[in-house]
Amino acid sequence: MDDLIKYAPDLLAGFLKNVQLSAVCAVLSLILGTVLVSMRVSPTPVLRAAGTAYVNIVRNTPLTLVLAFSALGLSDTLDVTFSDDPGSNSFWLVVLGLSLYTATFVCEALRSGINTVPMGQAEAARAIGLTFLQSLTMIILPQAFRAVIAPLGSVIIAMIKNTTVAIAAGYLAESAFVMKDTFDDTGVSIPIFLGIVVAFMIITLPIGFLTGWLANRLAVAR
């Protein structure tokens, strides 16, 4: 317990980084996931193929490899840099890798939501004169989002926990790394372990409850 209190400021600073990563990745992966699903259901074969290929490749690659590729492949080899400050640069590399990865799960959740929208909705939209994009953004996706709020919650929760493998992209400031670093000094400390678990639960549990509640509240009555 003493260890936990002693290292709390460091651990908390690390955890704050997890929260920052999560917030940015949540926004980016939701946006990118929506773009991906639009590609996957579009009437253009090239877009559909590109979307499908992207999802199948990235979703089936281990996250640590995606992150390592961001750091070693993109940054070191191809010289993609977000910032001159190495800490800040690797923060954004993690954001990039994790968002690209999570977007595939967002895309697939949304796609199953689109499948719950009856064919007739798209037909009615088309009959009224909506273009594919109008029909998707105004008729189909609003209904699809409501249908998959709970599964999207799970995707986001998984993403938040995935911020702890940021070290794979060489990011050394988040709580899991700080914890490991601390253990190197002090030996394994169960209270520190549990403290971090509790910290994550404080963030993720409410997300689960909130999305469950929203799913009921916004459910589309047909």
Partner: peptide
């Protein structure tokens, strides 16, 4: 067009 299942927009 009026569809068989009406296809009203539920949202």
């Amino acid at each position: 067009m009026v569809f068989q299942d009406y296809a009203l927009f539920p949202h």
